[in-house]
Simulated scan of single mutants.
Amino acid sequence: MTAFQETLSADGRVCSYDRLGAGGSDQPEGPQDYDSVGETLTGVLDQVAGDEPVVLVRHSMGGLIAGRYAPDHQDRVAGLVLLDSTSPTAVADVSDRIPESDTGPAGELRAQTLAIFAGENPELLVFTDGEVTSAGDIPVRLIQHGQQYLGEVPEYGEGLEEDWTAGQHKWLALSEDSELSTAENSGHYIHVDEPDVAVAAIDEVTTRAAG
């Protein structure tokens, strides 16, 4: 996100961090859950923002973490921009869509994805599904991919795309001021493929949060 962050920094203060197990940060001491990664985020906010509220801009798994964090930290989070965020029911989405008995490429994708969700990832984060709870009326803008890359999965691609879109709609429950849009020319990395779309959403949320 370096180039994207540099673009944003022209008009405001932007900070990023590596979660435990990623980039230059220390390795976690053991498996992590949403509470433990949230504690790390709180520590970062204490250092860079003090008591000031912030707008969180998160992508993919980071969006899942932010979506779980914001409802319990309404004093810290003034707005959210979630870029193609992982579904709040990601584990069930994959488990139910692709049968365990599949021995082809889709079955391999299922096994690999569920292993990641079970904690076989650099952050040792264990994914758990759950209902989306409200963070009040903070501005929340969700942007999903328009280029159907999940549709390339043999036999189950169309269903995976449907599940992904359904997950984005579930995140709308985060706030009374939530909106979902599609970056028509983007794959999963919207901030790379169509940074202007992401920047416009961030500008809107930041302005609304400040007002």
Rank of each mutant, 00 (worst) to 15 (best):
L8K: 14
Y17N: 00
A3I: 00
D72Y: 15
G63V: 01
E6W: 12
H191N: 06
A10R: 12
G119D: 06
E120S: 08
Y156D: 00
Y69G: 01
T206R: 15
A198Y: 07
I65N: 03
D193V: 05
L180F: 06
F127T: 05
N121S: 11
E123V: 07
R13T: 14
S186Y: 15
T182L: 02
P53Y: 00
D75W: 10
C15D: 08
E123T: 14
R76C: 04
R58Q: 08
E161P: 01
Y149V: 06
E158A: 15
V55R: 10
D72E: 13
A66K: 10
A49Q: 12
G119A: 05
D84Y: 05
G79D: 00
R19I: 00
G157P: 03
E155H: 11
G157W: 07
T133S: 14
L114R: 12
V205G: 14
G146I: 05
L64C: 10
R110Y: 11
G21Q: 08
Y34H: 14
G12I: 08
E161K: 02
G62T: 00
G119P: 05
L160P: 00
V205H: 11
D193N: 10
R141K: 13
T2Y: 15
L8M: 12
E39R: 13
A166W: 13
T40I: 01
P139Y: 12
E100P: 03
D102Y: 12
H145A: 14
V192P: 06
V55H: 09
A70F: 15
Y34E: 15
D33W: 11
G67T: 03
F127M: 15
M61G: 01
D196Y: 15
G136D: 05
S9D: 08
Q27M: 11
Y17A: 09
T206K: 06
A92L: 01
V54P: 06
A115W: 05
L20D: 08
L174R: 10
P99V: 03
Q74R: 15
T86I: 10
G62M: 01
V126P: 06
D75S: 11
D33A: 07
D35W: 10
P28H: 03
E29R: 05
D93M: 14
V199C: 03
P28Y: 03
S16I: 04
E100C: 01
L109D: 05
Y189F: 00
L41P: 10
D96I: 01
S134V: 09
F4Y: 08
F117Y: 12
V197L: 06
L41D: 09
D203P: 02
D18G: 09
P139M: 09
Y69L: 02
L8H: 04
H188M: 01
T182W: 03
Y149L: 13
T103S: 13
S95H: 11
A209R: 04
Y189P: 04
A200T: 07
Q74N: 06
P154H: 10
R58L: 14
P71H: 13
A118P: 04
T182R: 12
I138G: 00
D18C: 10
V199R: 10
V140G: 07
V37C: 05
Q112E: 14
A115M: 06
E152P: 04
A118G: 06
P28G: 02
H73Y: 07
L114T: 04
T165C: 10
D193C: 04
V57N: 02
E176R: 14
I138Q: 01
P195M: 12
D177Y: 01
N121V: 02
L82W: 14
G107Y: 07
D26C: 04
T182E: 09
D102N: 14
L114Q: 09
G167S: 07
S101A: 15
S87G: 11
